[in-house]
Amino acid sequence: MRLVTYSSANLGGPRIGAMTEEGLVDLTEACGVTSMRAFLEDGLQAKAQTHVDGAREFVSDYRLDLPIADPGRIFCIGVNYMNRNEEYKDGQAAPTNPSVFMRGPLSFVPHGRDLVIPPESEQLDYEGEIVLVIGRPGRRISKAKALDHVAGLTIMNEGTIRDWVRHAKFNVTQGKNFDRTGGLGPWIETDLSGIDVTNMTVETRVNGEVRQSDTTASMAFPFAKIIEYLSTFTTLQIGDVIATGTPTGAGARFDPPIWLKQGDVVEVSVEGVGTLVNGVINEA
């Protein structure tokens, strides 16, 4: 099931729905919630599936919002694809533990809306990533049970203002949290039965040109290890999201660098999940 948060001129919002081949099925009244986080906390997936299976009406007027408008926390894993470690050319060995930083929800826009280049910098870069959505809380979760805590997968363009990640020593927070510089969506894919999460493809295209393409088989820290590691120091909560790292090929790694500019269109496709699409504009 592909779960979405959306708004509608006719129905208002926020509302919860499921995207099907026939169209968008509203779940708000059927499940009695307007928040995706509440939907996951209340364990309404089975009830929603029953409603979707019997649906005969579809929403024609809608605008997708962030899949989870109020995530508990947004964890991001850095330098997780092995060829990215080599890309840094700093002579350091492969990492023994994941690199972790945090982002806030204001730094993201939903599928179909524009990323914004701020006036403070022209160095807006793209980073296509697979995102885990936590659907079951836990502390010190074993790798064997890690995926039992995942409600589904979504997609992120973990947009970065490159020069601002170097404003201070050991601190990337500023460059990772400019308002509306990243994309998240379009939905949460809850059916992972046909997906090999250990070898699934993520690809980023800018104006149709492939810039990034790799599989999770290249990850230094697979999904299960990431969950095990994060849950060692903090209790993972329902509605937390975890961006799992980006492959090589970001704009900063070209010579000279290729930054996003107004009018560009960035697409991030994840095998078995879908495609996140965002345009790019200059901040007014």
Rank of each mutant, 00 (worst) to 15 (best):
G245T: 10
V197F: 06
I117C: 06
K143A: 09
V109G: 03
N177K: 13
A220W: 01
A220F: 04
G175I: 00
V270T: 05
G263L: 12
L66K: 14
G54Q: 06
L3V: 15
T201K: 15
G208A: 12
Q212M: 11
I141D: 00
S218K: 15
P67R: 12
V116R: 13
A30L: 11
L3C: 08
E120Y: 12
W187K: 15
C76Y: 01
P222C: 06
S121Q: 01
E21M: 01
E87R: 11
K89T: 05
I258F: 02
V266R: 08
P71C: 08
D65N: 15
G194A: 13
R136C: 03
S7C: 14
Q123G: 02
E41D: 05
T154C: 11
G239H: 13
M219A: 05
L276N: 10
G272N: 07
N157T: 12
V197M: 12
G239S: 08
D148W: 02
G183N: 06
F75A: 05
G279Q: 04
F178G: 02
K169E: 03
L260V: 12
R139L: 02
D264W: 05
A93T: 13
R166D: 04
F108R: 07
E120T: 13
V100C: 04
A38T: 15
A55W: 03
R2C: 08
V268P: 08
Q123L: 03
T201I: 12
I68K: 12
N97L: 15
A144C: 02
T232M: 05
S269N: 07
R37S: 07
G54D: 00
F254W: 08
D61P: 14
M19F: 10
A284T: 09
T204Y: 08
G135L: 04
N85Y: 00
I258V: 15
G208D: 00
R162M: 07
P67H: 08
G239T: 12
R139V: 04
V270D: 00
Y62K: 13
V131A: 04
L27A: 04
T173L: 10
D196S: 15
L64W: 07
V33F: 05
E22W: 04
N157L: 14
P14S: 06
S231N: 06
A48Y: 08
Y81E: 01
D264E: 03
G104D: 01
V270Y: 02
G194V: 09
A146L: 01
D196F: 14
C76H: 02
N80A: 08
S35K: 14
